[in-house]
Amino acid sequence: MDDCDYYAPTDLADAVKHLSQSGARALAGGTDLLLQIRSGLQRPAAIVDLKNIADLGQVQIDAARVRVGSTVSGAELTANAALTACYPGVVEAAGLIGSTQVQGRATIGGNLCNGSPAADSVPALIAAGGVCDISGVNGERQIPVAELLIGPGQLDLQPGEIVAAIVLPRPAPGQADAYCRFIPRTEMDIAVAGVAVNLTLDDQGVCRQARVVIGGVAPTALLVPQAGDALVGTKLDATALAAAGAAASAAAKPISDKRGTAEFRRKIVGVLTRRVARIAADRTGRAG
């Protein structure tokens, strides 16, 4: 017998109440939390399962915005054609998290709130300008995804607060996104580095805005304005792509670990930036 309580509320208010207890942990897909419990890294006093809260499991798309509930799984996102049409990069990023088995469980909110510097969905959400809908015992608030993440495993969340949904603006005409990561194998690895690009091309194929976000190369995913600036005003020719890649490499603050050396990560993030920008541009249907 262990001393951990289990709650499976159907109501958000109940969930945040339970979560405000000392030692309570939110359970979404569980693919990170269960590992942390198994390894002794987490010894929760209570587990609050969020998956029975209907609102958290919805994807809603209206004229102005896309709202993705935090407990929507990777498999559900991938199967959502309307969402994929709006944010192919976000969907492909979420679809890269783990195996088919993990896809059936791992959620977008969990990937975000686990706080891993290498989380696949996070660069794409930041590049998309995502904002978190946060609920807590003291009410609701909104903060950009980029501001939620403070450091590895560290979030700007108070006890009892949860990310209920991530809200993205409806993409403008000519806007598209993409995400790629580098892993040693073809599957089943954690990203050594990942890059998301969200950009808009005008009808002449000239880039009018670009957000480049790099992951796995710093304590948190980094928006690299210099990389985006290198693309704006260009038709994403080789020179512009090279400049964006160089900016991404320069902005990276990687470490060496079992998944790759700092030098390797710095190089790779530049290569990925070039490749991902190209894919995103092609997805706009306006690239020359």
């Binding site: 040693p184 194998r185 073809t186 599957e187 089943m188 690895d189 954690i190 079992k258 998944r259």
Partner: peptide
């Protein structure tokens, strides 16, 4: 040992 698991001791998977 820094990679004592199948996550980072990388044996080939079907798609490799």
């Amino acid at each position: 040992l820094d990679n004592a698991g199948f996550l980072d001791y990388r044996i080939p998977v079907a798609s490799d």
